[in-house]
Amino acid sequence: MASHMTDSIQPEKRQSLTQKFANPTRFMALSGQVLPWSLIAAACLISYALYLVFFVAPDDYQQGQTVKIMYIHVPAAWLAMMAYGVVAVSSFGLLVFRHPLADVSAKAAVPIGAAFTLIALITGSLWGKPMWGTYWVWDARLTSVLMLFFLYLGLMTLRSSIEDELLASRLTAILALVGVILLPIIKFSVDWWNTLHQPSTGFTSSVHSSMRTPLLISAVGFTLLFFSMHLKAMRNEILRRRVKTLTLAEVDRQSRG
């Protein structure tokens, strides 16, 4: 009730806040300004992290040099999940609030998320070879990330196989939300089934600080990279939609003589 009151008392402030994100034109202007800086920041952080990884951080006393894969693997695995979070929140925004940018955001995040998931899977399996003696084991973590990858593939395929774009985005959003509910269950079931992968230690203190610092920097850098790519992909999608609208309008004009 109270929030309704404030809504009606200060409609202007509320509107301007939401409009910043809702209005594609505003979004284009804003994202155009942010994008170069976030890209530069991502590049600097990732380069610095790589420098630390190769010239400063020690090798693991057990794993030797192969531990360096971790600095790519862990951020990629983190982004695989975070990207799904972005997809899910955007899908929710589309279905519930019919937010015009929500669909653009969901559509743009899926392939990026899928790419990071694939990177996590590949680096993980490369890391697994020296560690476990095999490229792939059917352990709980690998299996559930593989399922996440399938879900990403499903989202992309479903969208591309429905011609009506509006319908495609709604159905894809429904699937994305179904995935949110089912992912923990799949995860839980494979956990129960079989496990070999170590529990996530990523950013906790069990990793020595000489390794944790570059890992953190790398993670932040990759996260910035993700958001830059996401912004760029959203901009491309908005432009593509504008081109489509213009083309349709032109066809319309021609057909009416």
């Binding site: 399938f150 593939l153 499903g154 395929t157 089912l182 079931s189 129960w192």
Partner: peptide, 16 residues
């Protein structure tokens, strides 16, 4: 497409 979408959802049923 249906197989791609649905089979991952069947994982828990299969496992248990």
């Amino acid at each position: 497409l249906l197989a791609l979408l649905v089979l991952p959802l069947y994982v828990p049923t299969l496992i248990f």
